[in-house]
Design a protein around this nucleic acid. Structure first.
Lengths: 185, 185
DNA sequence: TGAGACATGTAATCGGTTACATGATTCC
DNA sequence: GGAATCATGTAACCGATTACATGTCTCA
């Protein structure tokens, strides 16, 4: 019955969106197709199998609306296990590996955690993010300095793009931390 | 004999690195493991099969060094077809889809194109990039404005991170364009 | 003589992509 | 009645991940 659910980014996005309100596969496709929500394919070949896996894993439960008609619409909602799984994935500490390999997923986690973990925990998450970026940036800068000669001209510039991207993300995070704490009530 | 080669990002990275100097699978693994070169797995299960596919496709050719010994080292170099394929992939126009879905691959293309396409073409590539980012940013800002109410607090902030990332990349590109043109000789 | 770097591969598994397939409902 | 939108799915294929497997060479 219970099937292990692979913690893919897509499954996290689905859990997060469904936690907000019950959604059908078609709804999810529309969200991915028409909003800048992460970068997920809106192809049925990705979404419907993912929903099946989540349901087999016991994290979501589908209910058929408008039974009677053929081509019924099925909306999914989180089960208790699903809530726990979502909370776990959103609460994981931020690692330097996340910063290097999965920055987009970290931003997705932040986008989804508001309702689940609250404002102050969101701010703490961003503080972790800033601190990990702060730890990684010197590595990047050192690499640029040490390898300048071996790197091609364009290669060195590309590295600078990576550095600029992280600096911009850290600036954004610091600004949002202030905002979240200021508008606290 | 000739096998179609899927244009994955990994295959582009391999072609680009090999174009610079002949490399073995182990060399590639080391580069992916120890430098901030794109975000590629250094696992043998990804690299050796990719090399095989490229060789079957006639884009690269391996030569065994130190034959005699067991565990010989094999380095690969581009064939004429490989050069053409690399040039083609680096010369493709920048689309808005690339900007939305494959920004990292665009930066990789820039990093690799110096020797192949030259300085002025690199600058032209960045101009295309800047112009496509310029076309996409208003869409993103409009979405933020229009959806502000529907979006969760964190969701709106996350969108702002996306905007900040693109702005930083555009700033970087404009600076590099000036640099490339200034240091021209 | 043992650790660690050098060096290349395979096998099972799995998620995503692409393409295909089907049918209902709504609106002009 | 035809187009567009709503709505769900399957099948073939393929590349990446993970884990396993093997053996060499160098140096302390």
């Amino acid at each position: 019955m219970k099937r292990a659910v692979t913690p893919s980014t897509l499954s996290l996005a689905i859990l997060g969106l469904i936690s907000h309100e019950p959604l059908s596969g078609y709804d999810l496709r529309k969200i991915f197709a028409t909003t800048p929500m992460g970068h997920f394919s809106n192809s049925p070949g990705a979404i419907y199998p993912a929903l099946s896996r989540l349901e087999e894993g016991g994290l979501i439960k589908g209910t058929i609306e408008k039974r009677e008609t053929l081509r019924p619409r099925q909306t999914y909602r989180l089960t208790k296990d699903g809530w726990n799984a979502l909370k776990d994935r959103l609460s994981k500490p931020v690692t330097e590996d996340d910063v290097i390999w999965r920055l987009d997923e970290l931003v997705l986690r932040f986008a989804l955690m508001g309702d689940v973990l609250g404002r102050e925990n969101s701010a703490l998450f961003l503080e972790e993010l800033v601190s990990n970026i702060g730890a990684y940036l010197p590595t990047l800068r050192a690499h640029l300095k040490a390898q300048r000669k071996q790197l091609s001209v364009n290669g060195a510039y590309a590295l600078e793009q990576g550095i600029a991207k992280y600096e911009a993300t850290a600036r954004w995070a610091r600004r949002v931390i202030r905002d979240l704490r200021k508008n606290e009530r």
